[in-house]
């Protein structure tokens, strides 16, 4: 049985299309006077946020409420989580409360996968460490499809801190499932070792890629990447000036874009660093739409996971496991066969 949305890779082409089509219909709800559907009446959705993210949490909250689910916001700050309660204890608490779905944001990669083993309901990954953010990728795909009418065959360029970006990982996976051609552009220090095996092309040269792009997605570059607490030796690039000169989307570069190309940003932006304000606020920009589309897409995800007897999308159940770790399949003799 399918149960969770942990990674964009959990979605087949059919699944992803179903989410986008459903979101399309649900988008109308946001335009009505009565912005509410009875669909998830009596279901409980927990927003479990170990990391601050007003934007994502609010979006999920609104999505759940528009479907009439009961919503509990469980933030790490001010709860027992900050007093050293483990993720597992928190999971058991939520389990006892009878939650049907947990939307989790966590600073450690893989925390949603861990949580999925400890609760019976669905787990929706709302961003885990530097791993994935599948609903962001879905809303980005939704935005592209709305603006450009299709996804298959689109040239999508993702620019910036790919190494640390969960948005990039989820987008690469989802967009390749949907048939787009993704190019990653970043300084080599901000691309992970192993990126050559991803379903995407890689370039270090933004100017060469821009004219061929239908979509340019700018990733946030955190200033910490220039070295935590002033530790210059671990910096990924020499200075923000040099970064924005080589990889920032400024007005001059935006002119190189095709007429109908769009500019996206998952937010929050560092204006003047990776994107010029004129570009962020320009007609190509979908940044505000992305926020609105986020609600529709998250409604679709919640509906498809919780709206019926069993989820219609998502990852296979990893098994409910409160005591010993799940046994591995025994290896074939004499060969290492990681399960």
């Amino acid at each position: 049985m399918r149960r969770h949305l942990l990674s964009a890779a959990d979605l087949s082409l059919e699944d992803a299309t179903l989410v986008l089509d459903t979101a399309e219909e649900l988008a109308q709800v946001s335009e009505r006077t009565v912005k509410k559907l009875p669909t998830l009446r009596g279901r409980t959705v927990v927003n479990l946020f170990f990391e601050d993210s007003t934007r994502t949490r609010t979006s999920f909250e609104l999505a759940a409420k528009r479907l009439s689910a009961d919503v509990i916001n469980f933030s790490a700050k001010g709860s027992s989580v900050s007093k050293g309660e483990t993720l597992k204890d928190t999971a058991l608490t939520l389990e006892a409360m009878g939650s049907d779905a947990v939307v989790i944001r966590h600073s450690w990669s893989g925390a949603p996968a861990n949580l999925a083993r400890w609760i019976r309901g669905s787990v929706v990954n709302a961003g885990d460490g530097t791993h994935e953010h599948p609903t962001q990728a879905l809303l980005d795909a939704f935005t592209m499809r709305k603006r450009l009418g299709r996804i298959e065959g689109l040239a999508v360029t993702i620019v910036g801190d790919v190494l640390h970006s969960r948005v990039a990982r989820s987008n690469v996976l989802l967009l390749s499932t949907l048939g787009a051609d993704v190019t990653l552009v970043a300084p080599p220090t901000l691309l992970p070792v192993g990126v050559e095996t991803w379903p995407a092309s890689v370039s270090y040269d933004l100017d060469a890629v821009l004219p061929k792009s239908d979509v340019v997605m700018m990733l946030r570059v955190q200033r910490e990447r220039m070295g935590p607490s002033g530790e210059k030796a671990t910096a990924y690039f020499p200075s923000s000036r040099e970064y924005s000169r080589r990889y920032g989307l400024d007005v001059r570069r935006a002119l190189a874009l095709a007429d109908d190309a769009i500019v996206m940003h998952p937010g929050p932006m560092v204006r003047g660093m990776e994107i010029a304000p004129e570009v962020a606020d320009g007609v190509r920009s979908t940044i505000v739409e992305q926020v609105a589309n986020g609600v529709s897409v998250r409604m679709a995800v919640l509906y498809l996971l919780l709206g019926g007897a069993a989820p219609a999308i998502g990852a296979p159940d990893v098994g409910f496991d409160l005591a010993p770790p799940a046994p591995l399949t025994p290896p074939a003799q004499g060969r290492a066969t990681p399960a």
């Binding site: 893989g110 460490g129 530097t130 791993h131 969960r166 992970p192 192993g194 991803w198």
Partner: peptide, 8 residues
């Protein structure tokens, strides 16, 4: 390859 995908 695996660490790149897992974000670890």
């Amino acid at each position: 390859v695996t660490s790149s995908m897992l974000g670890l």
